[in-house]
Each structure stands twice: as C-alpha cells, then as structure tokens.
C-alpha cells in the first residue's frame, strides 16, 4: 500500500518506496528513522539568500539514500507527520 510517492506500507511497516528498506512501524513518524540532513537554506545560493536560521531538511533512506521528503524549517521545530489510517 502506498503512503506517498516515496514511501509504502508493507503490512504494519513503513518502507522505502525505492529499495523496500523497512523504516519503522506505521504509527511512528518515519522521519525519526530516516537520515536527516539539515542545512541552511542559503547554501542553495543567491536566490535563496535567507537568514541562517532558515533550514532545509532533507530526509533520505538509510539504505539506498533515496530522497524521501524535504521540509523548510527552523531549528527545533517538530517534524511534520503524515500518516495513513489503516
């Protein structure tokens, strides 16, 4: 079952849609189990000349490195949590 364009539900587990790697139980925010790269948005160059405090969060699969989601965020703001009811 599909959770998003990049994630699937396999039984009660959320898995990477690219390699099938299991991330966590469906009731957990999968982002806690993904690899998080958090960098200042301004590292994208001139048109993205934002404050240092504006971050780009990149969540990737720990197994294959597939990009699973991104968020614009400020430090310590909680992750957005998307879930499917089954």
């Amino acid at each position: 079952m599909r959770l998003s364009q990049t994630l699937d539900l396999d039984g009660t587990s959320i898995v990477c849609g690219h390699c099938g790697h299991g991330l966590c139980d469906k009731d957990v925010n999968w982002k806690e189990k993904a690899i998080l790269n958090e960098t200042p948005m301004r590292t994208l160059g001139d048109p993205y000349s934002t404050d240092e405090q504006v971050l780009l969060r990149v969540f990737s699969c720990p197994n294959c490195g597939a990009l699973l989601d991104t968020e614009t965020a400020m430090k310590d703001d909680p992750f957005l949590h998307d879930k499917i009811f089954t």
């Binding site: 998003s4 048109p47 993205y48 934002t50 404050d51 504006v54 780009l56 990149v58 990009l67 989601d69």
Partner: peptide, 19 residues
Amino acid sequence: AKFPMSDGLAGGYPGSPNA
C-alpha cells in the same frame, strides 16, 4: 522574504523566496 514558501512535494525542494 526570509522564507521560501513554495513548498516542494515528495522530496522536491522549495522555490526561492522573494527579495
């Protein structure tokens, strides 16, 4: 102006902000 507001989808990055 301090924040990109055009969010991406499925891993897409946001568009750049205004200035």
